[in-house]
């Protein structure tokens, strides 16, 4: 579904991703972990098409299409969804109105007629249950005055409404208490199926107890330095990120004398 090959990306002249490779197939759940500043969120934003990040090298294909040539909205129409780390507030636009616009813009792209009010309401009621979304939030302005947990639930609610093929969850667990985390995880797990892939970006192992990944990758200094199964997450939890740091630095220092002697 998604193939990332040797992606380099920078913003404001600062190199952040330095050759990321990753393949995600339908039905898989991948987790990307790593210390702060390792480039996790940058990877999510590069995938979603945020203009501030310039891809200087590499290729990404999404369902065989060159992802980097697609506009952010077309990436969404093609089935990519990003649950934001910091969902924005849109004053004056009700949550219902926002989601209805999003759903119908996607339908338009696929040549489908817009959902009428009744069908939309029915769909919305059904999906709201997934994340225990309070009905009163729907008439309020998008994310305005929502608590941290409500904002994150709203992200998963939108995911449920838009039914993406690939959902990227950028630190969805950050700022959530344990109850909110459980609700969000339940929602995500319900949406898990053989046609849909999920990319979890997280700092902590905690989320992975609730959403169990098939693969875990460690991003460090703009590169994936380790990949494994969920056991890798437990290992990280136990040893902390320091051992990755030591490992990757020692491998760098180990190769350096060799390089020097060769030159």
């Amino acid at each position: 579904m998604l193939l990332i090959q040797d992606i380099h990306a920078e913003t404001d002249g600062k190199k952040i991703l330095k050759g990321v490779n990753l393949e995600i197939k339908a039905g898989e759940v991948h987790a990307i972990m790593g210390p702060n500043g390792s480039g996790k969120s940058t990877l999510a934003l590069v995938l979603a098409g945020r203009e501030e990040y310039e891809v200087t090298q590499g290729r990404i294909t999404f369902f065989g299409k060159n992802l980097l040539e697609l506009s952010p909205e077309d990436r969404a129409h093609e089935g990519m969804f990003l649950a934001f780390q910091y969902p924005v507030e849109i004053p004056g636009v009700s949550t219902t109105q926002f989601i209805k616009t999003a759903v119908n813009e996607n339908r338009k792209y696929h040549g489908e007629a817009p959902l009428d009010a009744v069908a939309f309401l029915k769909l919305m009621k059904e999906k709201m249950r997934l994340v225990d979304m309070d009905q009163s939030l729907l008439t309020r302005s998008m994310n305005e005055g929502f608590s941290g947990g409500e904002k994150k639930r709203n992200e998963i609610f939108q995911m449920a409404m838009l039914e993406p093929s690939l959902a990227i969850l950028d630190e969805t667990d950050s700022g959530l208490d344990i109850d909110a985390l459980r609700i969000v995880a339940k929602g995500v797990n319900t949406l898990r199926n053989e046609n849909r892939a999920i990319l979890l970006i997280t700092h902590y192992q905690r989320l992975l107890e609730y959403i169990v990944p098939d693969f875990v990758h460690v991003l460090y200094n703009g590169q994936i330095v380790r990949s494994g199964t969920k056991d890798l997450a437990l290992e990280l939890e136990e040893k902390g990120y320091d051992f990755i740091r030591e490992e990757s630095e020692s491998s760098v220092s180990a190769t350096q004398p060799e390089n020097i002697s060769k030159t």
Partner: peptide, 12 residues
């Protein structure tokens, strides 16, 4: 940020 959020949801 608002515009990007909308675009990510498929709204141009």
């Amino acid at each position: 940020d608002q515009l990007f959020y909308c675009k990510q949801r498929g709204i141009d």
